[in-house]
Simulated assay, not measured.
Amino acid sequence: MQNNDSQAPSGAPDTNMQSELDAELETLKLRMAELEASNTELRDTVLREKAELENQRRRLQRDLEQARRFANEKLLNELLPIYDGLERGLAVEGGDIATVREGINLTLKELLRIAQNNGLVQVDPLDQPLDPDRHHAVSMVEAPGKAPGTVVSVLQKGYVLNDRLLRPALVAVAKDD
C-alpha cells in the first residue's frame, strides 16, 4: 500500500519563515545601529553646543568685568593734563594773584570742556522760572522787577548727565510782593 498523502517536506515552511524573521531581525539591527549612531552624534553636538555656550558666557562675564574696571579710563585719561597743570601751578613760588587766577580760570574751562565731552551739562537757571525737576529753592527773597517764582540767584549750580539730573541747582527765588 502506498501512502498518497501529499505533505510538504517537514521543515520547509519553518525554514522560509525563519529566514524572513532573520532578515527582519537583521534590518532592525541595522536600523538600531543607525539610530544609536545618530543618537551619539546628537549627544556630541549637544555637548559641544553646551560647552560653546559656557565658553561664551565666561567670555561675556570677563568682558563685562573688564568694562566695569576700565569704564572711566577715557575720562580719567582726559583729566590727567588738568591734574598736571594744577600740580605745576602749585609748584610756582611767588606768582602774582592775577596770574594764579588766570591759571585757575583756564583749568576750570578745560575741566568743564572735558565734562561736557562726557555728557555733563551745567544747570545755571539765573533769571529763569523755577523748575522743581531741576532746581531746589532754598530761599525766597524780595526781588523788585522780577516775576514771582523767577530764580534771582544761584547758590550752587546743578548738573545733568546725559539728560539725567545728577544734582539740582540750589537757588533763591523771587517771592510775591
Rank of each mutant, 00 (worst) to 15 (best):
R57F: 14
L42H: 05
M32T: 10
A98N: 10
Q66N: 12
A67I: 03
N55H: 13
D44N: 15
L120P: 07
A115P: 09
D84C: 04
E102R: 12
P81H: 06
K109L: 04
N39E: 07
E34T: 02
L120W: 09
S38Q: 14
P125F: 05
I104P: 11
L47C: 06
N117K: 14
D63E: 15
P81I: 08
R101H: 04
P129W: 01
R88E: 04
G85S: 15
E34V: 01
K74D: 08
N118T: 03
T107F: 14
L60Y: 15
E73Q: 14
E54F: 01
V100A: 14
Q61D: 12
D84M: 12
L130Y: 10
R31H: 02
T40Y: 01
L130M: 04
K109M: 10
D84W: 02
D96T: 07
E87R: 13
E34N: 08
L108Y: 06
A67E: 02
E49D: 13
Q66T: 02
L35Q: 12
P125V: 15
A71L: 07
R88V: 14
L30C: 05
K50M: 13
R59W: 10
T40M: 03
R43L: 06
T107S: 13
G85W: 09
L75H: 03
A51Y: 05
I114N: 06
L80K: 14
T99R: 14
L64W: 05
E49G: 09
L126A: 01
E87K: 15
E36I: 00
E54D: 14
M32H: 08
E36M: 09
S38H: 03
